[in-house]
């Protein structure tokens, strides 16, 4: 586990993400899906869908399944928990969740290390 201070990257403005959708940002060469739920709920997970290897998770539909906030992969419709990156149907296909911060109008992402 890294003990370094988190590095924050500014990825876009709040207004760049339509509420209820996601975008893909390049953060230190990583593809990160950043979602906006409602006006001010922001979440980030890896953008790459482990099942297909395609960089597409930001293009999935968001919502909730029970208590999980989720995105459904646009390719095979498996669901990822936006807070943890866990794949609900196939835990072996889980992804990382990253930290998001909003400062003023800007959205920042800090990557979590690979486990």
């Amino acid at each position: 586990m890294s003990t370094k201070k988190p590095r924050w990257t500014a990825v876009c403005k709040i207004g760049d993400i339509l509420p209820g959708t996601g975008v893909c940002a390049l953060v230190e060469d990583c593809h990160v899906a950043v979602f906006r739920l409602g006006e001010d709920g922001f979440y980030a997970i890896d953008n790459i869908d482990p099942r297909s290897g395609a960089s597409v998770l930001s293009r999935g539909l968001v919502g909730n399944l029970g208590e999980h906030l989720v995105v459904a992969s646009p390719l095979y419709k498996n669901h990822f928990d936006l807070r943890t990156g866990a794949c609900l149907e196939m835990p072996e296909h889980s992804v990382r969740a990253h930290r998001v911060q909003v400062r003023g109008e800007a959205v920042f992402v800090s990557l979590s290390p690979l486990s």
Binding site: P19, G20, T21, S52, R59, G60, L61, P74
Partner: peptide
Amino acid sequence: GELASLQDSNDYFLGNIQKDG
């Protein structure tokens, strides 16, 4: 407007998504 956020990827990008995105 808001309708965009309801669309499946295919309708959001007005094209069929392929296996590689």
